[in-house]
Each structure stands twice: as structure tokens, then as C-alpha cells.
Design a protein around this nucleic acid. Structure first.
Lengths: 189, 189, 189, 189
DNA sequence: GCCTAACCGAGACGGTACGTCGTGTCTTAAT
DNA sequence: ATTAAGACACGACGTACCGTCTCGGTTAGGC
């Protein structure tokens, strides 16, 4: 019963190489072979620990993301939502981060298992944090009691995804603020 | 300047075969070779008229969709939005249609040109119709004057995309209605 | 019912490359991949027409051998046998030819089907020719009537194979002559 | 200078596993990995003591063969040769023994060093014994004085190798006797 | 009877080649 | 000129073994 004696050096080299190649060539042209070559690693080593390039990119993302950005609670719901929505918009606007998000999105669209993993490990926590902040807002009377919090969260993030996915307009800070304001209108008592 | 002597029988066979295989195997495992074989057609015939499997699926979608669903205007903005949002939710909930949407989405995430085509030819018209209906709502005082119509459209469709993409909850008629109600709250004067 | 439209240029390039690489690297280090690369050909093209490197080498051999060396019949059995045995010994002594023979031998030792092909298409005809000459020798009284011709043929060729296989001595013209003389002693009336 | 503390249990397990796998899968599909797994042994242990699968099979053969069957000398040369040639034919006809012989032959065809080892340690002694018996036969007048003993040995064994290698006929006791008779004709004074 | 080296099993590692699949281009023969 | 058919060069797939390299865990001498 020995722990799987995994080579950490190889693991890091693989994740780094994967992200580099992703920005260089785009996800569809990213190959396991190229990752292995760039990382100075045998293909088998990749297949031993990951199910494919999608899983590698996912782990690279998880690895490069701060553990869990907690949402601020300054007492001002609108201001706090602005902070998080601005950050999200900025993330989607950044070509580097957007590339990995695009990659993961492609993969989740065809890999059910990976989709669940991404949803549960990456996205749900973030959305749950916003939900918590909204609930706190209800307690302080800054948000209506009757609203469906899940739906409200979608009202905040959905438009960003929509615009990003359809390349249907600029993703700027002003856009973030406008979005928050409109959503606040919907949920303010 | 002769018109391209294109074989309509082959074209139909290709589009049909493509949609069949898409639902059978999923987009990533869909191959031009298989489409050609199923359609009883040479590969060259596909490559002569389309840029790849993405373009084939796109044409199949366009072909199978009613030319341009015009939005109803019953005078009741909320009711009209319910109609269109319910329809959209139903479309995303339907496995058959969802499969082609998923395929196109994958392809647009990596093919900029195709993305524009999809956006301008398929989606913009539909969104523009909703925008028009909202403008008409402003005229009748059912929607505030100050709102950004583009953003409002995103507020309506964004959450659906978000939920669909992240498989983050059920896509039901009740969901559609709730969504419309929340959005209406944001834009009612 | 079209003939298999096979590219003769590719075929020649493959056979040539295979023989070159065989002498350069030896049979065990010969790879289909290397043959394809040297020939400027896709691996698939090799696998389409041959079962593996063994079959390629076999065809290369058959291709490079004169269709069917007929045995001379000068009336002098001993002299005629000398001619053919000297030629055989020379063939085994020649490094170039020996390399391909060695390759084929390796392959036939593990591939039953190939072994039959080699035996029936390459060796049997040659041995049959010698057998015929021996039969003619019987008619002219230069060989005993009672002898088993198959065995006699083996008596002539077996020692050469034995010496070659075991690297158990030099393969010279003198050896060939001595061998013929000893065999003649066994079969002369 | 301590003796290498070699695990005899492992050694036996490896040789046994190698022979088993050899008959099960044939030499080309025999792998060091499989031998190690079957023997319950680390790969390293095999590579520590042998140069590769060829060397393992060779040692297995040497291990399973009686040290050195001396040739009988009953005074009757023909009878004694019959004994040894019959035994050799039987060995080549036996599928079990033939498999290991085939394996070793394949390996020697590409490994010069191994070839020498096999020739000098396994075959030469046997052939030398026959040569000695022939020399004794010369002394008793049962064989001519002028003959080349090396060649005569090849005359006896070569045909067997030839027939075995080319799968060119049955290897029976009758064949052995016929062969001895023909060879005796060549060397009897 | 302990200590410490060598040896052991296990199996991860960087590689190389495998044989297959799909790509997009090409050639051929037949409408 | 377009078509069905399919060969072609190419490149990646995911797998199998290669021979080397750690890892602990025995195990057998020499003290």
C-alpha cells in the first residue's frame, strides 16, 4: 500500500507546457504529443495521470487560481457586487485567462464528467459565495425577501457569459457596473 | 458565369447524415469521413462546398429552422416575452436541438469566422426582434425609457445560456416565467 | 470492380528504402516508421499493401531477384551442380544479400504464413530445378536410380544453411566444390 | 570480493516463466515485462543478470538440457550415427523443444555475441563429439581417410536444419535413417 | 545476534514504435 | 464539370515495452 510516487517536477512541467501551448496554438490544435515534447516528458506520463488534454488544462487552471477568493462584505451590497462582477468581466476580457476558459468550455461541452467536475469544483463555490452575499443583503434589507437567489446569481453572471460566448459586445468595467445596476433594480425591495 | 452545378440530392443527404451522426456520436466524434459514408457521397463533395464539419452542421441547422420567427406583439410585453423566453428555454431543453447548439458552440469557440457567421445570421436577428419588442414596450410605457436595450436582452437570454452551459439547474417553463418576471421587475418603470 | 489503383512510385520507394535501411541498421532495428519516412510515404500506405516489415522485405527480395534462374544442363552433372552450389554459397557469403536472407529467415521463424510464401514462391522453384537436373542425371547414368531426390537436394543445400546459420566456417568457392564432390560420391552409381 | 548474492528462487521463477510464455505466445511476442510479471519479479532483477530476453531463453535452454550427451561407440559407425541423428531429428520435431530452438535461432541471427556463445557452448561440443566418432570410424576402416570431417558433420546435420527451417518436409525417424544411409554412402571407403 | 550492504518487488519515468484513424488533397472512371 | 470512390502524405492518437531510475522492505553475511 504505497502512495503513488508521482514526480512533481514532471507534473509542473506538463501543466506549464500545456498553458504555454494553449495560448500559442489554441485548444483544438493543442495535442498531448506537443505537451509531452515541450515538457520533456513521455506521453505515457500524461496519460497515466490525466484522461486527456482537457483534464490537464483543468488541473492547470485549478493550480493557477488562488484557492478561493472570498466575497467582501462591506455592508454595501451594490458595491460588493460591483467588485465581483467587475472582476469576472475582467477575467473574461483577459486574453490569457479567456483562452483557458474557452478551452475548458469546449471540453465540458462534450465531456459530461469533466463538466460536473468544473461546475462543482470551480464554479459552484464562486456562485455560492455570491449567493451568500445576497442572502446577507436580504437580512439588511438591501434585497427583497421573495427573490430566487439562484436565479439572481444567474442574472448577474449569465449576461457576461452570453456576451463572451457570442462575442456580442465589449466586456468593460462600465458594462459590469451597468449590469449590476440593472440587476439591483430587479432585487431591491 | 455559370451557376455552380451543385447536386441538391447530395446536399440533402449530407445534411441529414450529419445531423443523424451528431446525435448518435456527439460532435467531437463526428467526422467528415463518416458523414460522407453515411450520405453515400465522396469526401471531396463535402470539402468542395463546406469548410469542415462545423460549416455542415451550421447549414443543417439553418436549413431546419423556420426562416425568421417574428416576435408576437399582443400589447402585453410580459406575456410576449414569456412566449419567446419559454420557446428559447424549450429549445435548450430539447436534447435533439441542444445537441446541434452544443456542436455549433464548440466550433464557434475556436473558429472566429464561423462565430461571426452564427452570431450575425442566426442570433442577432432573433435578439434584434426582442429588442424591437422592448422598444415598443417603452413606447407603451411598459418598459422604462432609460434602460440599455442590449443589456436587457442579455438579461433575458444570458441566464438561460449560463444554466445550459454549466448544466446548473433544470430548464423548465416555470424557470422561463420566473426569469421573465425578474427581468420585468428590472425594467418596469 | 475497379483495379486497386496502387501508386507504383510509392511502391518502389518503399522497397528501396526498406533494403537500404535493412543494410544500415539490421532487421530488428528496422521499423515501418523509418521505411515510411525514408520513402517519403505515409505509414498507412505501407500497412495498406503489406502485413508488416517482413512482407515488405520479402517483396523487395522477390522484386530484385531474376525471375527464375534455370539450371544449366551441360551434360556434366557434377559441373552443373558446381555452378549452382557455387552461386548459392556466393549468395550467402555476400553481406548485402545475406542481410535480406537473414531478415526473411527471422521473420519466417515466427510467421507461419510468410514462411509458406517464401518456401513456395522463392525456394521450392529453385530446389525443384536442381531436382530436375538430378533426374536428368539419373537418365544419363550419372546418378543412381534408387536415391531420394528430395533428400539429395537437402544434402547439397543443407550444409550451406547449416554453416551460414551457425557461422561455423567460411563460405568459399572451395567449400562449394568440396561439398559437391562429397555429395556426388553419395549418389554416383 | 563477495559472491553475488543472487536469489536462486527468482532465477528459477524467471527461467520457468520465460519458457512458459515462449510456448504460449511465441518469441517475438515474448517480453521482459511479461516474464517479470509471471515470475513475480521486478524487471530490474532480469536486467541485472541477463542482457535481454534472448539471454534468458538461452540460459533456460542450457539449464534444461542434460550436461553433455556423449556419443555412443558401439563399434558400428552407421548404427551410432543413426542414434545421434534420430535424436536430433526428434528434437527438432518436438514442438516444445523446437520453440526454444526457434527463439534462440531468431536471436542469434541478429546478435553476433549471442550467436558465438550458442555456437561454442551448445553446438560445437555436440558436433565435435560426432566428429570424434567419425575419426574413430576412420581408424576402424568404416570411413574413408580423405574426407573432410567438418564437412561430413554438416552433411549429417545440415539437411535437418534445412528441412526444419524451410518447413520443407516431415522430420521422422525414417528420414533420419535415410539421411544416415546416404551420408554413409558418401564416406564409406 | 546486529548491522549494513546488496538485492529484491514494484512500478514511475523518458523514450520509441506500434498500428489505426481522420485530415484535406489528389487521381480515376462514370455520368 | 461534378460526382462516388478511395489512394495518398501527414500527423496525432492511445498503447505497449524498452531499459533506467527511485522507492521501501527483506535478507544474508561479517562482525
Amino acid at each position: 500500500m504505497t502512495a503513488p510516487r508521482r514526480n512533481e517536477r514532471s507534473r509542473r512541467a506538463i501543466l506549464t507546457a500545456a498553458l504555454e501551448l494553449l495560448t500559442e496554438t489554441g485548444y483544438p490544435d493543442l495535442t498531448v504529443e506537443a505537451i509531452a515534447a515541450r515538457a520533456g516528458v513521455g506521453k505515457q506520463t500524461i496519460y497515466r495521470w490525466w484522461r486527456g488534454k482537457g483534464a490537464v488544462i483543468l488541473e492547470a487552471m485549478v493550480d493557477s487560481v488562488p484557492p478561493n477568493a472570498v466575497l467582501p462584505d462591506t455592508g454595501d451590497l451594490r458595491a460588493d457586487l460591483r467588485t465581483v462582477i467587475r472582476a469576472t468581466v475582467a477575467e473574461f476580457a483577459d486574453p490569457r485567462l479567456s483562452a483557458t476558459t474557452r478551452a475548458i468550455t469546449i471540453e465540458t461541452l462534450s465531456d459530461e464528467a469533466l463538466a460536473e467536475q468544473v461546475r462543482d469544483q470551480l464554479l459552484r463555490p464562486q456562485l455560492a459565495a455570491v449567493k451568500d452575499r445576497l442572502r446577507a443583503g436580504q437580512a439588511t434589507g438591501q434585497a427583497r425577501d421573495g427573490i430566487d437567489l439562484d436565479l439572481t446569481v444567474e442574472l448577474l453572471f449569465g449576461p457576461i457569459y452570453h456576451r463572451w460566448l457570442l462575442r456580442n459586445g465589449p466586456l468593460t468595467e462600465g458594462y459590469a457596473d451597468e449590469l449590476v445596476d440593472l440587476a439591483m433594480t430587479a432585487i431591491t425591495p
